[in-house]
Amino acid sequence: MRRAALLVLALLAAGLLVVTVMVGHRAPTDTERVQHLSGELRCPTCVSQTVAGSDTPVAEGMRAEVTRQVAAGRSDSQILSWFKQRYGESIVLLPTRHGLGPLLWAVPGGALAIGVGVILWRRRRGAGWRQETATEHALPNAWLAAVLALAVASGAAVPVVFSLRHHGGAADAASAAPTAATGAVTSSSPSPAAATDPVGTAFDLLKNGQPAAAEALVQGLADRPGKTGTLALLVLGLAQRAAQDPAATETLRRFVREHPNHPAAAQVRRLLRNS
């Protein structure tokens, strides 16, 4: 009797499952499509965020564009490839066939396959004998020391190799870094902005990879009194640092000395400590 009841229940459950799968199938709404697609696009100016989850202007623009295209009736793959044409393959968050993609799918699949495989293989070999060992044979001291030495040596090798090679690399990077000016300084005729706001212009130049030009602009201004002098000194120090000018440390130290309460002082201090 009980068995019959359970059987009926099982059949009912199966029936429910079938109904569940069949019923309520409808195409996603436009809003849902926009949300789904936004979740598949990477926000290009963020660190690991989707377009759906980001507040940056670029992400907002991308969401607006997705909305427009969904309303225009384009398909998901059309919209995604539209973005890929403009931002590159990496704008779509699902790894594709090229490059990293296959590896990212293969590794978990492989892990699962290995796990299942080991289980089945061990079953076939048969169970081990169910006894417990309680041996007391400790590792001979020499071997223990050897293991420790090997571990410490391989561990220590990592930072050593990095510090040796990286300083070499850093020097190369500095000389190869395209100081975009390549000697061709600012525009040949000083723009109105440079005349009225040299420190601001210098700051912009610094941000755009032209430290030499920035340094040239503020060279004489660092000794001026007031806010101009303060900012000029800061920009000069940063520009010198970016251009690998050895005078940078002293300039930055002077900034911290003379203006310890400036909002940027804490960061400059940290910069000096880490270099």
């Binding site: 293991v147 391989s154 930072p159």
Partner: peptide, 18 residues
């Protein structure tokens, strides 16, 4: 970073050797 990586390498190598 490299120091932490070295620690992890040391642990893995040590345990495997053990």
């Amino acid at each position: 970073g490299p120091v932490l990586l070295g620690f992890i390498v040391a642990v893995i190598v040590g345990v495997l050797a053990l």
